[in-house]
Design a binder for these strands. Sequence first.
DNA 1: GTCGCTAGATGAGCTAAATTCATCTAGAAT
DNA 2: ATTCTAGATGAATTTAGCTCATCTAGCGAC
Lengths: 302, 302
Amino acid sequence: MRKLPPLGSLRAFEAAARHLSFKKAATELGVTPTAISHQIRLLEDICGQPLFRRRPRPLALSGAGERLFPVIRNGFDIFATAIESASARRGQRLLRVTSPNAFASRWLVPRLPQWRTMHPKIPMEIIGTDAVLDLRAGNADVAIRYARKMPPDPAAQELFRDSFFPVCSPELLAKGRRRIERAADLLQYPLIHFDWMNRDPAAPTWSQWLATARSIDPSIPYTEKAWDLSFREELHAIDAVVAGQGIAVCSDVVVSRELASGALVKAHALSLPGYGFYLVSVPNHPQQPNIEAFSAWMNSVV
Amino acid sequence: MRKLPPLGSLRAFEAAARHLSFKKAATELGVTPTAISHQIRLLEDICGQPLFRRRPRPLALSGAGERLFPVIRNGFDIFATAIESASARRGQRLLRVTSPNAFASRWLVPRLPQWRTMHPKIPMEIIGTDAVLDLRAGNADVAIRYARKMPPDPAAQELFRDSFFPVCSPELLAKGRRRIERAADLLQYPLIHFDWMNRDPAAPTWSQWLATARSIDPSIPYTEKAWDLSFREELHAIDAVVAGQGIAVCSDVVVSRELASGALVKAHALSLPGYGFYLVSVPNHPQQPNIEAFSAWMNSVV
DNA sequence: GTCGCTAGATGAGCTAAATTCATCTAGAAT
DNA sequence: ATTCTAGATGAATTTAGCTCATCTAGCGAC
């Protein structure tokens, strides 16, 4: 039969891995860091191997932890929304929109004021998670899915597609020794990487970008490591890029505001094809009018 | 931020819902039925509504419980396999095959002896779950997926497709007042239903079958309820059918052994189109030879 | 270099959450 | 009717998980 670890330890692990800090995890769960430490230790004993690499200092996930984390995180996201939608006293007539985490934070939420001025009467909840919530099970009302191809759902429409460019803060380039003219010039700067979507082997990462660049300009030198700084959270990587810590291959949709404002600039013109953003809902939904309003708005913002 | 209920109560709920019995759930978790009762009550308080309908007996899930259950069950399945594959001292070189629950029990496991005689050296683990395990994350090595269309994975191949027929035990028909000649004659018998795949509105259920039958023979009377006995577990429904409790619309693949042995017979020739069974694996897997052996075997058994 | 300073580890003791026990009730089976 | 089983309920109890106190490693400031 199924063999589960103590669930409390999973909860501690998830929070610690998300914050990469036992202390912050403890604060979030309302306990002392010691409690987190004990729980993580327990889980590590069960797995028979370390889940975190504690030394040298900045706390990091081990290989096993790295693999475990997204699964556990998505699981808890799914549990939370399932319980939320199973709760009787739920804010009625609330339009629940789910989208990938990074898209929610950097694209959707900043544009929400505009939606609110158009539809101040429609209360809305944004569920930013990389878990795929089940609309049919009622865990959300509308979903923005991110995928190579159109999802098979009957009521799906493509909103737009993104492309991946190397982007960085203009200050970084200003400080750089020489202007970037050729792709090889990028290698002088710290390359920032994030895991992004571990299900797709052809994900638009630095190694992918460099491979493409080499097929055009074979003079680009091969490097041992494909990046200098890695993040598990796309959002953290973007923060680092904005702070001028290096160059990352980013979705032009996710960082569209930064590109428009000049906070970020494209470091090179070569782009990798990205994915599509699809708006999905279930037909004959009780909130049909609100869903249509949201759909119309999304299409207008594009 | 995310609001999760006490996880112990979810565990109790999942077990109780699966067994539809607090007592059995208690046995499984190694506690007393009282503990389950308390935990369920706690969860119901959190949700603000009953998750079970306790009276009249037998115990059944409420609407909210019905919606919650598959989500929680899949979540735990996923957690369990994730922890399992994160465990260091894992039986090495073990071929982990995942398939839908009912297919694993009624098709795959009975045919396994045949596989073992051909490949006695390959240790294997069957993970029967309706959760979609992530092969890339290493939570299984091969998957048999069940879907309308070919999954997008690069290494996917269709094994076979199924059809859905009304099936029942031959004893039931023998006891019946008159032979079944027309579709309408089926309505004399108890119709057994199971939820099956709550994501697909066009799932091959009794209401779907009757609608199709009516389009051919409009004389079939409309009935209030589309079924007399409902199960949430496909396997339980099949057990009930084998025991002669009624007629169900079943996959000819899942009940192929019963049809071959005569334990079940087709009650009517009209079939609904089913889904495809697809064998999926990740390319360049360390267990490539074993995966290929399994693939070859699956294709030969078909 | 040395001197903090912070984050986490460790083990003993404590607390509250989860479990059991004893008792009670509804419904099913005989 | 009578009996039997599953679950409800509330008080008592256990133990898992938490805190406290203490210790260590690494990092940064001077």
